[in-house]
Nucleic acid binder design. Structure first.
Lengths: 193, 193
DNA sequence: CACTTAAGATACACTGTGTGTCATAAATAA
DNA sequence: TTATTTATGACACACAGTGTATCTTAAGTG
């Protein structure tokens, strides 16, 4: 499921390996929050992580690769939130439940959505929505792919707007807006009453 | 209206200045199409433009600044297309007319929407939609700002999806999809029959 | 405890940025 | 046209960051 292109040939179970990677990821998160992804150098990351410069390249191909591994990790985590066993809390059925998670992780979510990996996040979201039976919305006139794309990109766009707006809008209001602008219209197109 | 931060103190009317800037902009466009914005160096640009390296910095602060000046130029041009005197061809009234323009300029539009300036394009689009009396959609429950944001981001997102999809979908179909996914729902929210 | 191997330290070549300086060519203004 | 202004080109330079190579050391593994 994870597509991080970590350099092969290392014992993933070695404590030193796990520690180094954990330190590098945490350093990236901290630095991205404080300085922004674009303004960070690999030397900054290794310095913050207290790790040798060369060591970085023993694990990742470059800055983008490290970010990618982080994104994969988060996407997997978010999937767990959006598709719980009960399925009652899925974002198209109950936006509020999802928003609670997003709000508590606002920093990291925005970091992710504002980074160069944003496109990949959208792609993964579309892919996720298209998974077998997951797509609630189906229209006779509009291709499934477009339905999924519009749903995912609208949700992400509204989420960014909300999280960047300094929380002027409450979680409850936002859920209502999402329902009116996205969910209901798409339900209507799907013939769901 | 234009916010390009061109370095001051130069005679804008001097033919040499105009020629240099035109060459640099065209070089950026060409290189972005062939190699992608991220992979271009300033040396590449000046080489392509047949302009001295140092000369670049006499006009722009850096790569982003040059892109910005290009974006400003394009946004102004697109505004003319989207808001003609007749106003009958506005995208919320007749998506088809706008799509014709977008299709013929697909390369450049995609370049722009995939560049680092994409966020600013969205901001400008929202700002444009919010201009006095321009916003057709108004809801009693949803803030104007959010209506404009959702409209703009949805249009841009659908546009990207369309232009990146190798034209599998005809202009006519796309106009229909836009109408069903965005225009009609927002009209309904506005109480427009 | 012996062995393996990841990590640290350091040096290096390379690419790209941004600035300084000066002679020259080209545009402007008279 | 001619004289003057000034944008440009051609270097040269300091600097920052990348990615690799090599050797030693320290830590984790079995």
């Amino acid at each position: 499921m994870s597509t991080s292109s970590i350099i092969l040939g290392m014992n993933e179970n070695d404590l030193r390996v796990q520690r180094t990677r954990a330190l590098l990821r945490q350093a990236l998160i901290d630095l991205v929050k404080s300085d922004g992804y674009e303004n960070i150098s690999i030397r900054d990351i290794t310095k913050k992580a207290q790790v040798g410069y060369k060591t970085f390249y023993r694990h990742y191909e470059g800055k983008d690769d490290l970010l990618q591994s982080l994104v994969d990790e988060m996407v997997d985590e978010i999937k767990q939130v959006l598709a719980p066993p009960s399925d009652i809390e899925a974002p198209d059925k109950n936006p509020l439940a999802s928003l609670t998670y997003m709000e508590t992780n606002a920093d990291l979510i925005l970091t992710l959505l504002n980074s160069t990996a944003a496109d990949q996040v959208l792609d993964k979201a579309v892919e996720f929505a298209l998974e077998e039976g997951r797509l609630t919305f189906k229209s006779d006139f509009i291709p499934d792919e477009l339905m999924a794309h519009h749903f995912a990109s609208s949700m992400i766009s509204l989420l960014r707007w909300w999280l960047e707006g300094d929380k002027q809008v409450s979680k409850l209001e936002m859920a209502l807006y999402i329902d009116q602008l996205v969910i209901r219209p798409m339900k209507a197109l799907s013939g769901i009453t």
